[in-house]
Structures are given as structure tokens and as C-alpha cells.
């Protein structure tokens, strides 16, 4: 069953056709990678899923419900979490607080005047937050300030912030960009574990190593059009993909 279905999505920026009749079906419980050369429209497409951009035409259905016209916080409340290209975290708060906030947002909804009870008494929330931090390997740093983390750790923290919400769909925008090889491998392992827990993921990625070690299915975007969609092994051999992506060189 497809959890996210994108139909005939078009998006123009002035005269530039960023997305051209994009169709995409993401199956529940799979890792779906979107690859393509720079400027192919990958991030634009992702932004259309989370309410940052509104497609000119077309539909985006999540679990049968249209996401168009919803604000980012409303989309998140339906179960879509997002990891950004540069980690978006609460820099001047501790790691534990960073993860506590999304956990509270999941429980209390988009607004609640919960001003009487102390955060320290929210033991269930704290437990979940600690668990998620431990999951991504940051358990020992829970009292550190987020801004003191390395870039790789910030990314891991952002993942924990998404995971604590138990998302139905996790969107990742270049999760290993700018990471060292070792950090990249750690992140792949982590994402593999998340995928094994049954979380559906859509990953935008440049690094082919990452894509081929994670994806169940790959869509290739070029100049705003999906030129191929298949399992990794067949994408590797696809002539059109090689043409678009590497100008004919072999992957």
C-alpha cells in the first residue's frame, strides 16, 4: 500500500519549470530514495511534501489525505517528520530538551497552555527522550548544549528529534552531506536500523554509496521530471539514468 502518493505535481519558479508532472508512489515500510543531478528539483519536491512550498498543480496524498494547503506544523501532526540538509535544532538548549520538545508536541498537539506542571515531572516523556538519544548514540551527552555538538552529532540529534515522534513518514534531505566517511557509515547503520523498525523513509541523497546501501526503490529526477523509478540493481544499469546523471559515464 502506498503511504505517500504524488500525482502530476508541477511547480514553476518564474519561467523555470522546477517540477514537471512528477508522479511518485512511496510504499509503506520502505526506503525510497530520490536521486538526480544538482538542480533536478529534489529539494523542491521534498518542500512540497512538508508545506514549505505549494505545488502549482497536482496532488500530494499522505495516507489518503491531501497535504496541500496545510501548514508545516499541521503536516507534522499527521505523522510526517523531516530532517534538514543543515541540521535544524534548538542550539541553545540541551540535547534532552531538544528531544523533549518534539515528544511534547506529539503528545500535546500544536498548542497547549501547559504552564503549571513542571517539565521535570513528565517522566514518561523524559524516558522516551532518553531512549531516543541512546538510540542514536547520544545518550551520554544528554545534558550538553546542542550547539557544542559536531556536525555529525547534530544530524544524529535531529534524527532523534524526529524519531521520538514515532513518525509514519520520515523525510531526509541529504542526511550525509558534508560528513566524513566514518560518520557517513555510522549514519547508514543508524538509518538501516530505523528502516528495520518499519519507518517509511524518503531520502534525497547525492552519495551513491548511501543510496545503494539503503534504498528499496529509487526515483531518478532530472530537470524536474522523473526519468526512472525502479529497484537499485536495475537503476544502476539504466542507460537513461547514466546519461542524465553522469553524462554517459558508468556508475
Amino acid at each position: 500500500m502506498s503511504i505517500l502518493s504524488v500525482e502530476n505535481v508541477n511547480k514553476n519558479f518564474g519561467g523555470l519549470r522546477a517540477l514537471n508532472n512528477v508522479n511518485l508512489e512511496v510504499e509503506a515500510g520502505t526506503v525510497h530514495a530520490i536521486i538526480g543531478p544538482n538542480g533536478a528539483g529534489k529539494s523542491t519536491l521534498l518542500n512540497c511534501f512538508v508545506g514549505r512550498l505549494e505545488p502549482d498543480t497536482g496532488t500530494v496524498l499522505f495516507n489518503g489525505q491531501s497535504l496541500l494547503g496545510l501548514k508545516p506544523h499541521q503536516i507534522n501532526q499527521t505523522g510526517v517528520s523531516r530532517v534538514f540538509q543543515t541540521p535544524e535544532i534548538f542550539d541553545d538548549m540541551t540535547l534532552l530538551e531538544n528531544v523533549t520538545i518534539p515528544a511534547l508536541a506529539k503528545r500535546d498537539g500544536s498548542f497547549r497552555l501547559n504552564a503549571w506542571r513542571a517539565v521535570r515531572d513528565e517522566s514518561k516523556i523524559h524516558e522516551a527522550a532518553h531512549e531516543c538519544l541512546a538510540d542514536v548514540g547520544l545518550g551520554e551527552k544528554s545534558q550538553e548544549l546542542a550547539r557544542q555538538l559536531s556536525r555529525g552529532d547534530k544530524r544524529r540529534l535531529e534524527l532523534a528529534m524526529c524519531l521520538v515522534q514515532d513518525p509514519k513518514l520520515l523525510l531526509l534531505d541529504e542526511p550525509t552531506a558534508g560528513m566524513s566517511r566514518a560518520d557517513t557509515n555510522n549514519t547508514i547503520d543508524l538509518m538501516r536500523r530505523i528502516a528495520d523498525q518499519g519507518v517509511t523513509m524518503v531520502v534525497i541523497e547525492h552519495d551513491m554509496h548511501v543510496v545503494f546501501s539503503l534504498a528499496d526503490k529509487i526515483s531518478v529526477l532530472a530537470q524536474g521530471t522523473v526519468i526512472a523509478e525502479d529497484i537499485p540493481d536495475r537503476i544502476k544499469g539504466d542507460a537513461r539514468v547514466q546519461e542524465a546523471y553522469l553524462g554517459g559515464a558508468h556508475l
Binding site: 517528520s81 534538514f84 520538545i101 506529539k106
Partner: peptide
């Protein structure tokens, strides 16, 4: 000390992350 106060500090820290975390700023 409350969750509400924590959200207010989150407003100061990163409104973008807040809305993508499901919170209405």
C-alpha cells in the same frame, strides 16, 4: 519550569524547527 515555558524558549531558539516539529508558533 513548565512545558509551556520550554516551548517559549524554543521560539527564541529556532522557530523553523518548531513548526516542522508540529508546534504552532
Amino acid at each position: 519550569r513548565s512545558p509551556f515555558g520550554m516551548m517559549l524558549r524554543a521560539v527564541k531558539s529556532n522557530q523553523n524547527r518548531m513548526s516542522y516539529t508540529g508546534l504552532n508558533v
